[in-house]
Write a protein that binds this DNA or RNA. Sequence first.
DNA 1: AGGTTTGTTCTATAAAGTAGAATAAATAAG
DNA 2: CTTATTTATTCTACTTTATAGAACAAACCT
Lengths: 113, 113
Amino acid sequence: MSKDHLGELEELILLVILKLEEQAYGLAIQKEIQSETSRNVTIGAVHGTVNRLESKGLLESAFGGATEERGGRRKRFLKITSAGMEALRQSKELRLGLWNQIPSLAITKDDTQ
Amino acid sequence: MSKDHLGELEELILLVILKLEEQAYGLAIQKEIQSETSRNVTIGAVHGTVNRLESKGLLESAFGGATEERGGRRKRFLKITSAGMEALRQSKELRLGLWNQIPSLAITKDDTQ
DNA sequence: AGGTTTGTTCTATAAAGTAGAATAAATAAG
DNA sequence: CTTATTTATTCTACTTTATAGAACAAACCT
């Protein structure tokens, strides 16, 4: 019953991974968080959180091959699992439900894409 | 720059306080979280989080007077400050922004009230 | 081989969240 | 007026998340 919700950074990282699609790996996630939120999360924080999410089954990782770039280690690419997607949907539903019960925060058509 | 975001429970509690309006105090918050999310947060967790939010200036508290009920101690009523409201708005904006960049999570008119 | 670049791992600490027992204050009952 | 009952907050100990950055690893270039 309890203990299925995402931490704040866990949720943010899952969302950013979805946004980055095929280019989701540690450093890219860190940069994307920085550009979306002007928040400075360190690379250690990103990997720590990613590891936790993987051990919970909310995402999977796989190392990429050699690249065409200058040099550097192989990237560890992240992919959301269906359990991870479900967790994001639940979180969205909870917030939407609460916002819409509070007039000053309710969703309007201005919020839709 | 960094360190202005809400924890997961912090945000949930602020939203519930807004929803409860004049009846926001420890036990009521606990029950409301239970009914909105079927999550069992203990009363210690609620008060601990409320205290942290108050010390951050995101909410204020004041004890109520005697009631017309059976017995029991005075309630400590909680009220969101403008800084608290601002934090909630920022959090909403961040999520809306990310969801709308991800087709499977984007807000549609079905999500509006 | 040595240097540079890109990236992950590791280790230590602080903050947030969890849990429930202890305590307090108000009213009712005897 | 003393004791019991109800409603509620405080307190204390612990676990999980989040923060921070140094250490380490692997790929490419010269």
